[in-house]
Design a binder for these strands. Structure first.
Lengths: 243, 243
DNA sequence: AAGTGGTCTAGACCACCAC
DNA sequence: TGGTGGTCTAGACCACTTG
């Protein structure tokens, strides 16, 4: 809905100040010439993404959370954060080749080891002269037939979505801290750090096939993550919600 | 809706196997004697929490993600995870007192330093004989008037929700890795680890007042986090979605 | 009493998929 | 062609807050 886009935009730019009261659902429905249910779906999205908060019988109010650490509800890599803040970043492609599925990756990709080749891409991310992130990507070659070094040095995702028209639908991420290995020490500027934050990323398409596995390794001091959690109305996750 | 509870339950227990096809929305509407829109709201919730995936013109399918690392869509402390796996855990209350707001906390709690006292609670979490988590909580005393050592050694949240009837509505978490300080080394079994994972937690009530700030410090090897991210239909967060 | 958000309804049309 | 989910509608009743 355009309502979502309009208001999320205005809130992000600060046009709408925090704790401002939104127009009521009935007002919005009139204003946009639509039904109240439709307005509610837009407001629901805004609430989910941390832009507003709805209080029964009172109204909807702008939160100051959406602007604070942005992206919200997802992982923020240091690279992305740096670029938003306007810092320099560079990508170094160390490897970009079609290989049989490595044994330790096969289980992650949930595919048969002999049936399918995968593209393996290893890239170091340099920010302000320091290589602080190491990305290892594995793509199923039956879904991504071609992957050139040139594509890898840019945005692989723009290529997948723009060129190949792949529909990414959801992903699972697991974050942990592990000891740095030889490869980390070779391809990153680890300084004195002995450990790295490891983000394992499982990416699924519209038809629920897992087509990519990524391991993103971050230097400890250059990692941050922001999460916005809302109490679900499903009365399900009581214990889950807080730690 | 009861539909959400029924199906999330059946999926979690494994009663409904992954990739099983759900009844269509029309069937569910008939079955539960409700309208299709209402069914859709229930399915929407299931999809958001990683239980199912909806494919246009095909149907809704059970995912195997909801069961894998459970809680989903939130932080999982090692304590919670351990208890689910059935491990022993113990809480040690080191401090439980009413104090003026410390200067460095005042900014986090967004309250005036002289107007309001806060409860400060420091607890170490021991799992299988090792103190691997250190929680520092600060509660606004105008909202939480009483907090005994006994309450702190159990579940503070059960007390807040059950006894005080506080309505928690949303929270923001910021995760980073920092150097361990003297306090960490004194109250935790840090072994050789020089850093800790720090989870800063800002908790808000229904009326959007921030009433609690918590700093949860985890030993590196005992921290894990799982995130389930779904491509938003709002066509907003393209870059945000991955890494 | 008027206004708010929460919930639900009984329809409708669409694009897409499988047959 | 029939079934699916995606979107939207124009109403309705409720519990709650506010003046």
């Amino acid at each position: 809905m355009q309502i979502y886009q309009e208001y999320s935009g205005r809130i992000q730019t600060g046009d709408l100040a925090p704790s401002t009261k939104m127009p009521s659902e009935n007002e919005l429905a009139r204003e946009y010439n639509t039904s109240r249910e439709t307005v509610r779906k837009a407001l629901h999205l805004l609430a989910q993404n941390g832009y507003i908060h709805k209080i029964k019988a009172k109204g909807s109010f702008v939160l100051d959370i959406g602007r604070m650490d942005f992206p919200m509800g997802g992982l923020v890599s240091f690279k992305e954060m740096s670029e938003r803040i306007g810092r320099q970043s560079r990508t170094i492609v160390h490897e970009n080749q079609l290989i049989p599925v490595p044994e330790d990756i096969a289980s992650h990709l949930e595919i048969d080891q002999h049936k399918c080749l995968v593209w393996k891409v290893i890239r170091a991310r340099e920010i302000e002269g320091e290589r602080v992130i190491l990305d290892k990507d594995y793509f199923r070659s039956d879904i991504v037939p071609v992957l050139t070094q040139e594509i890898s040095s840019g945005s692989i995702y723009e290529y997948l979505e723009g060129e190949l028209k792949l529909q990414i639908s959801y992903a699972k991420k697991v974050v942990s801290v592990e000891e740095a290995d030889e490869e980390d020490r070779g391809l990153m500027d680890l300084q004195h750090y002995t450990h790295v934050v490891v983000v394992r990323n499982y990416v699924y398409l519209e038809d629920t096939t897992l087509f990519q596995y990524t391991e993103s390794r971050h230097r400890l001091d250059k990692f941050q993550f922001v999460d916005f959690a809302r109490r679900s109305h499903g009365e399900d996750k009581k214990a889950d919600f807080l730690k």
